Amino acid sequence: MASQGTKRSYEQMETDGERQNATEIRASVGKMIGGIGRFYIQMCTELKLSDYEGRLIQNSLTIERMVLSAFDERRNKYLEEHPSAGKDPKKTGGPIYRRVNGKWMRELILYDKEEIRRIWRQANNGDDATAGLTHMMIWHSNLNDATYQRTRALVRTGMDPRMCSLMQGSTLPRRSGAAGAAVKGVGTMVMELVRMIKRGINDRNFWRGENGRKTRIAYERMCNILKGKFQTAAQKAMMDQVRESRNPGNAEFEDLTFLARSALILRGSVAHKSCLPACVYGPAVASGYDFEREGYSLVGIDPFRLLQNSQVYSLIRPNENPAHKSQLVWMACHSAAFEDLRVLSFIKGTKVLPRGKLSTRGVQIASNENMETMESSTLELRSRYWAIRTRSGGNTNQQRASAGQISIQPTFSVQRNLPFDRTTIMAAFNGNTEGRTSDMRTEIIRMMESARPEDVSFQGRGVFELSDEKAASPIVPSFDMSNEGSYFFGDNAEEYDN
């Protein structure tokens, strides 16, 4: 783990906690998980779902989305002020799938948001429990990260689609708070800032007046979040320049895209947490497990152990491969979309394939898809080993990566060399080191050039047997250095459309 220093740990961010010791953190995270579980059980009762239907990941996603929508204050306010045809701002819903006479049927349900809020609060001892809501947002974000390569979004903001390893959390809503900021990748933060800068260039009043003052505060806050992700002084200094700019424009845009590229080699610290679907927490609570009393951590053995003992089902389209669908969801559960496939294969105990080789589309089923041909199958979400999630980018030494994705962002704290394609990355730096950030740029390029592919990161860190909950005997895996390590390699994943 990167030293926490003055930073709060993510469990504290996750639970809005002030400084807590490890036991208190485990208890408050457990409380959050228990609340999600209780809410899910109650919703299944309301909807009269069978046990099997309640364990269907598509039903879980609909129920999670309903509660997130019920608590989305800004959108609710907007919907009330701008009524649109056929949208009731006070209601929320989605597809629920039921097994009827041996076939899967889709039923569109509609609930009062007020009623959903009441059920959620009741499951969370009367609190709004925003930490639990954020947790579900991060699960949705991790699922998107594993399912889609955001080529269009990258290109629109002047970045290269091969930089997708920097895009963790790119679909997280803005209201996801400190826990959300911690899991956002460098590219995601750059993209958010670039969008602001572009608006400022096109709209003279963007930075002016009372609204402009708020915009400015948001801009500086985002700059500080991004600065905190960088691990070298030169990158941090460049972020200070971007933040202090009187009138952010093209120079800042250039600096930010430069920094994003540099992060492929001088990786930023991005938190990883295993956020599971509500249909995993519900049955665990129903079986009598007391998360608050037992304590829970999002970055240790607990999620692995929970998945070892969970039964989750998914709808499967006619030509999809259930094992591939399982891999997709497994990666999402562990926030591992940008991790090295060699490491993932070792931990999972079966070969993890790149996205383009998977015969599976996303987990969600569109409303126009034919239910007649839908089957369902068990998702295999178990693992051979477990490993500690990392909050750091690993040290800054790398190795060759593949054509589709030119770097990785480690999820697990496991000893290995970190793949990246130096030639491709360095070719993108057209040696432009003039301007006010020239000395920093020169320094950053120097550090990137001296990074050695064969150097090892996370020295001495290994994986653990599932029986080793105290992480007492690390097993340090050895990897084939020459092997392909990137998930979005030469990829044809669908595009994420909101």
Rank of each mutant, 00 (worst) to 15 (best):
E292H: 14
D72M: 08
G132A: 13
E115I: 03
E380M: 13
M448G: 10
I33F: 10
G288A: 15
D128R: 03
P477N: 04
A2E: 11
T45G: 02
N76S: 15
D340A: 07
N101G: 15
F420Y: 12
N124A: 11
G356P: 01
G249A: 12
A182R: 00
R55Y: 03
Y496E: 04
K184W: 12
A2V: 15
M448R: 04
G94Q: 04
P95W: 05
I408M: 10
I25A: 07
R422V: 15
E80K: 11
R391E: 01
A123Q: 03
E114R: 02
Q20A: 07
R452E: 05
R8Q: 10
L276H: 01
T45H: 08
P283Q: 15
L226Y: 07
R152K: 14
H140W: 11
E210H: 06
F253H: 11
E449G: 11
V190W: 02
D160W: 10
V100E: 12
S392Q: 04
G200I: 04
L259M: 10
M191H: 08
V352D: 01
K229G: 05
F71E: 07
E220P: 06
R117A: 09
T232P: 04
T45M: 13
N432F: 11
T232M: 04
K198Q: 12
Q364K: 09
S392W: 14
R261W: 11
V285L: 15
E53Q: 11
E252F: 05
Q308P: 05
N321T: 06
S376E: 03
D480P: 11
A129T: 14
S274V: 02
M371R: 04
G460E: 10
W207L: 08
V476H: 01
V67Y: 13
R221T: 10
R382N: 01
Q58G: 00
E53M: 08
E495Q: 14
K87S: 03
M105S: 00
M481I: 13
A146V: 14
V194N: 03
A131N: 05
I265C: 13
D203A: 09
M371L: 10
L353A: 00
K48T: 14
K87Y: 05
V183E: 00
H82D: 08
S359E: 14
K198S: 08
R175N: 02
I33W: 04
R98W: 13
V183T: 14
L328V: 15
A271F: 03
E372P: 05
N397I: 13
N321F: 05
S413E: 00
P277M: 08
Y296K: 12
F412N: 09
N432T: 11
F291T: 06
L266Y: 06
N247E: 00
N144C: 14
R389Y: 02
R8A: 00
I119C: 05
A27E: 08
P410R: 04
P303L: 10
D491S: 08
K91V: 00
S482Y: 11
F253E: 04
R8W: 08
D340E: 12
P453S: 12
T147D: 01
S287L: 07
V352T: 15
N224M: 10
N124K: 08
L298M: 13
R416I: 10
P318I: 14
G435Y: 04
S377A: 10
M426D: 06
E46A: 05
A234P: 13
G93W: 09
P303S: 15
Y313H: 12
D16W: 14
I201G: 01
K198T: 06
D51I: 15
R384L: 14
K470E: 12
P474N: 05
C164T: 13
D439I: 06
L133S: 03
E115W: 14
A493R: 05
E375A: 09
K351N: 12
S402V: 10
R221N: 08
E443L: 04
R355C: 03
N483L: 05
R8T: 00
Q241M: 09
R342M: 03
V285G: 14
Q364H: 11
Q398S: 09
Q4R: 00
Q20R: 09
T130N: 06
P89T: 06
E107W: 10
